[in-house]
């Protein structure tokens, strides 16, 4: 599997092109912002009836990553469900599928702003988690070291001779990792957004997801309007 390998606070990690973070030494896979139930919540609140297959698609990718890595431990870094009601109303087949994946592993649900509190699913629930030298939580804290968080759905635009791509990305510097959103109908915040620019150190890199996990310096020059659009964790043929 192609990946971007790097060492973070002494931990040998791999950013996978799917948007998952793989820690072989701990046999741990970390994914963030799955946003199950998004299409239903949109229908409920706006009337737009989007293709109701986002949960299937997200779960299919997660299943594939788990099979590929044979991970024994999983951390879902919050906003796993679009809201509490979405978690309660997950279609039976997705619920069963998810339960099958959870039961054979140690599975931790970190709370996010969309899904605080315990959920009616197997697995452990926690506001945050410490594993080895690393702290896992949903939203980044300003003064921290060795933190892995999600929430922002970072995405980067990269122009090169022969094209421009915009893809969801990991942001990595010496103190923190901000994970891309793994869910299918999830949008993103440009790396040029002041929030992300302030959060990340000047020498931060962005690892693009997509066909290949590709590292570039974190794009900081704002050549694109500041918009927050919802888009996929993985964008093919961009």
């Amino acid at each position: 599997m192609n990946h971007y390998a790097f060492t973070f606070r002494g931990a040998a990690l791999r950013a996978l092109p799917s948007g998952a973070l793989w820690w072989p030494d701990e046999s741990m896979l970390c994914v963030s912002d799955l946003h199950f139930g998004k299409s239903e919540r949109v229908a409920r609140r706006t009337g737009n009836i989007l293709p109701p297959y986002d949960g299937h698609e997200t779960l299919a990718r997660l299943d594939a990553d788990l099979a590929e890595t044979a991970a024994q431990n999983v951390i879902c870094l919050g906003d796993s469900f679009d809201d509490i009601s979405a978690a309660a109303q997950l279609p039976t087949e997705l619920n069963d599928w998810l339960a099958r994946l959870i039961t054979v592993r140690d599975w931790v649900w970190i709370e996010g702003n969309h899904d605080p509190g315990p959920l009616g699913l197997p697995g452990r629930h926690a506001p945050s988690a410490n594993i080895g030298p690393l702290h896992f939580r949903h939203i980044a804290m300003p003064d921290t070291e060795s933190e892995v968080s999600g929430h922002f759905h970072p995405k980067a635009r990269f122009g090169f001779k022969g094209g421009t791509v915009s893809r969801a990305c990991f942001l990595i510097d010496s103190q923190r990792i901000v994970m891309p959103a793994y869910g299918t109908y999830t949008g993103g915040l440009w790396t040029t957004d002041p929030v992300l620019m302030a959060l990340m150190k000047p020498d931060a890199i962005a690892v693009l997801t997509g066909p290949n996990a590709q590292a570039i310096p974190m794009p900081r020059q704002r050549s694109h309007p500041r918009t927050r659009t919802l888009r996929a964790g993985v964008k093919r043929n961009a």
């Binding site: 949109v42 297959y53 299918t184 949008g187 927050r228 919802l230 888009r231 996929a232 964008k235």
Partner: peptide
């Protein structure tokens, strides 16, 4: 919030 129509297309 807007949705990337590309993703909707791929999913469909």
């Amino acid at each position: 919030a807007t949705f990337s129509s590309d993703i909707l297309y791929d999913t469909l």
